[in-house]
Design a protein around this nucleic acid. Structure first.
Lengths: 181, 181
DNA sequence: TATTGTTATACTCTATAACTATA
DNA sequence: TATAGTTATAGAGTATAACAATA
């Protein structure tokens, strides 16, 4: 539907093209929004069977990888309020995907670990999610896609560092090594 | 439900690094979330004087550039519900940044145009926003940053096309339904 | 006293539906 | 009948504060 809206633009302003920096290419915020909405409406559907869709998937993924085992660390990493994290974990536990365990080193903190079912479910879903992500990046060929993912990772990890919430994109090394081990 | 979940994945597993695809580098959703939160907490502060921060800024930018003059088109482009757009425009009008005008061709539709004040405010803010965005991409040198922005634009525009909400990233040339590219 | 997690409350944002005025 | 916009209401999501348990 190409609406030939005649006489759209009002009388005075003659040149809609704005100053140099004003090209849409530079609208990073808009690009981010578009991508996130697309992500939610595609990946979100794929992981829709999970308690909280993309967030449940991300939590489970972090847990399966053994990163950030405590609720607070999970919340910080995923940008979720700790009071919200309680509910999310509740639902993941109810679904049998993760478990709360006591940390002998710090009895205040709960360690979140994936159940067998949770690990399997995540493994299966992850492939589909990756495929969906790739389709999301369909405008790029394989090489550009990898470049994009790498640049994205660098940016996100640096940002994470700036925020100083938790460790940056440190590769997973050891789970319980926070205190013991 | 719970209870007899047998030894979920406890201390036995020494290698938390998961299967091939499971490296954090590939977690596009997490990267997107990190970036968006960083965007909101940096650019959002810069444009904090605007009625609705980043969204007000994005709306005003779209209007200043002469894209999507009607509220519905604005809403579709920015992924905002049309009932929400009413309030947002209300506040932008109250702030003297934009105006609602009658479209003589279709008296149902309102055309949103930027006021002088709005255009000036946006021009000034855009420079600061761009600078903030660049700081957000600080992990990348100038060349990588441009590459990233370009790839991002390609992805977002293709996604937009898939969603078929409105026209894709047509370069702004003319408001009157001239399609670029 | 500070921290982790939980709960309850309140607030913000968004979606749903109904209504108007135009087409 | 369908579309653009507005308004009102309800819902989901989120943050704030108070609390208990532990450090």
């Amino acid at each position: 539907m190409t609406g030939d809206s005649t006489a759209a633009r009002a009388t005075e302003t003659p040149a809609p093209v704005a100053t140099g920096a004003s090209d849409p290419e530079g609208d990073l915020g808009w690009h981010l929004g578009v991508m996130l909405r697309a992500y939610q409406s595609t990946v979100g559907v794929v992981v829709g069977e999970f308690p909280h869709a993309t967030r449940g998937y991300q939590i489970l993924g972090t847990v399966v990888r053994g990163q950030e085992p405590t609720q607070l660390a999970l919340a910080a990493r995923l940008g979720i309020d700790r009071t919200v994290m309680t509910y999310l974990i509740d639902d993941l536990v109810a679904a049998g995907l993760v478990e709360r365990r006591q940390n002998p080193a710090d009895r205040r903190a709960r360690m979140i670990v994936a159940t067998e079912q949770g690990s399997r479910a995540f493994e299966q879903l992850e492939l589909r999610v990756r495929a969906t992500e790739d389709r999301l990046l369909g405008a790029l060929d394989a090489a550009d896609r990898e470049t994009f993912r790498a640049l994205m990772a660098r940016v996100a990890c640096a940002v994470k560092d700036v925020d100083a919430q938790t460790d940056p994109c440190a590769v997973v090394t050891d789970v319980l090594g926070v205190e013991a081990r």
